[in-house]
Nucleic acid binder design. Structure first.
Length: 453
DNA sequence: TTTTGAGTTGTTCGA
DNA sequence: GTCGAACAACTCAAA
């Protein structure tokens, strides 16, 4: 039997803390498959970030990364055969598409007398592992978080590029050129991920508890794109956080736990990527027709007339990223002020976000819509003015992304319609009356309650 | 089985 | 300006 193996990279584009290397050693071919089924919907920002990260990975493997475009069910067995690999090593994928894809690949490999070996996952604790004493999955975050922490996780794996002796590519290896984008992206690649993480550990993590809610300040970690592509493993981050022992480090650990919780929920309920997790919300009356499309376009383009909402939607376009607090504000506005389906907003986010992660994105949206886990009380409707004044108290965030309002000083920028000089040139009137739409949203939620019986 | 306590992120109103 | 109460009722987790 051949001692050769294949390491098939997917969402784990790194060489440190990479357990698949230990499983595949001593000799393997490094493979990445550009799957048109994933690349299509992933959007220009994520595609470009992916290509750049692949170039970085190829460099750390000294040019040995085999990149092939095609259907993995066809490509992976072909490459495995070309090097006569006994096994193909992967980190397990728990997403709805990945599970089906991997089963198809595995079937063909097994027919050829090879194995698909799953070692680790993109999570500290793999989905499906954290269970109540009776074996059922958790549906509420707080008890999940407790059980997740008790379950614990392995230490980071001690690996680097030299853990495996890399075989030469067997086919022409092509990483596509960057897709043309307007957005400015964070630096890609594993080294950039580690550098960013170190910067956060040395700085903002100390004030994370309060700083994370301020879109006008660099208070968040901005690790989401790196986690999305596995340029760092959460286990590496958790090990660093454990040595901090501060309240803020705990708060950040909780954010990692949310990522794992939502991955677990999506694993339990793959349908929840598209459907209401709580099906009684199917009875929620939604806006529809041409007026709904017009309202949606205004939201997408950041011309709702609510400055904090517009700033967020424009940050999304400019940076392919949005501050988490503002994601909640714009989501609440779409769902509760415009009465549009959460999946419209979720799809728009997935198209533009450089960190777009199916589990976190869809369930973040469902949380706001009230149809998800830990459904927020229906009467909790974000007030876009209050939220702006509270979390962007000087208006700096709004002015940064909404040039029409740059001449407005201080927090008056959150209510431009009330300025003594009138609405600044080029900035729209509020597209809705928030107070009225809030009451409308509450009335619509009554329908859900009524349908529940 | 039954019971009890609790649930990310808020807003409004009135004192 | 600040503060506490009301906003309802349901499901989940655990004892």
């Amino acid at each position: 039997m051949s001692a050769n193996a294949v390491v098939w990279f997917r969402r784990d584009l790194r060489v440190r803390d990479q357990p698949t290397f230990l499983a595949a050693a001593p000799r393997a071919l490094a493979l990445f498959v550009l799957d048109p089924a994933l690349l299509g919907p992933s959007g220009a920002a994520r595609s470009t970030f992916l290509f750049r990260s692949l170039r970085a990975l190829d460099a750390s493997l000294r040019g040995k990364l085999q990149v092939v475009t095609g259907d993995p069910a066809e490509v992976v067995p072909r490459i495995a055969a070309a090097v006569d690999a006994a096994a193909v090593h992967v980190a397990a994928d728990y997403g709805p598409y990945g599970r089906i894809r991997d089963e198809a690949v595995e079937k063909t490999l097994v027919e050829d007398g090879r194995e698909l070996v799953r070692t680790g996952s993109p999570y500290a604790v793999a989905p499906g592992r954290v269970r109540k004493p009776d074996g059922d999955p958790y549906k509420v975050f707080t008890p999940f978080r407790r059980a997740w922490a008790e379950h614990g996780w392995r230490k980071p794996a001690d690996t680097d590029a030299s853990t495996v002796e890399w075989l030469d590519p067997v086919e022409k290896s092509v990483i596509p050129d960057d897709v043309d984008i307007d957005a400015e992206l964070p630096e890609a690649g594993e080294d950039a991920a580690l550098a960013r993480w170190q910067e956060f550990l040395d700085g903002a993590v100390g004030e994370y508890q309060d700083g994370r809610d301020r879109p006008d300040k660099p208070g968040t970690s901005r690790m989401s794109p790196y986690l999305k592509y596995g340029l760092i493993h959460p286990r590496t981050m958790l090990a660093d956080l454990a040595s901090k022992r501060s309240e803020s480090a705990q708060t950040y650990t909780t954010e990692i736990a949310w990522r794992e919780f939502y991955a677990d929920i999506l694993f339990q309920r793959p349908d929840s990527a598209r459907e209401n997790y709580d099906r009684s919300f199917d009875a929620l009356p939604l806006a529809s027709g041409a007026a709904a499309r017009v309202a949606f376009d205004a939201w997408c383009e950041g011309r709702t007339g609510f400055p904090i909402v517009d700033a967020g939607m424009r940050q999304l376009r400019e940076q392919a990223w949005m501050h988490n607090r503002v994601r909640m504000i714009v989501a609440s506005f779409l769902v509760k002020d415009l009465h549009l389906p959460w999946w419209w907003g979720a799809r728009h986010f997935m198209r533009l976000l450089v960190d777009g992660d199916l589990a976190s994105n869809q369930h973040g949206w469902q949380w706001t819509a009230g149809s998800g886990t830990d459904a927020s009380p229906y009467f909790r409707v974000f007030n876009p003015i209050t939220q702006g004044e509270k979390f962007d108290p000087d208006g700096d965030y709004v002015r940064k992304f909404v040039p029409e309002l740059r001449g407005v000083p201080g927090k008056a920028v959150h209510q431009p319609w009330a300025l003594p000089g009138g609405l600044p040139e080029g900035y729209p009137e509020p597209m809705v009356d928030h107070k009225a739409e809030r009451l409308d949203a509450l009335a619509r939620y009554e329908q859900v309650k009524a349908a529940r019986g």
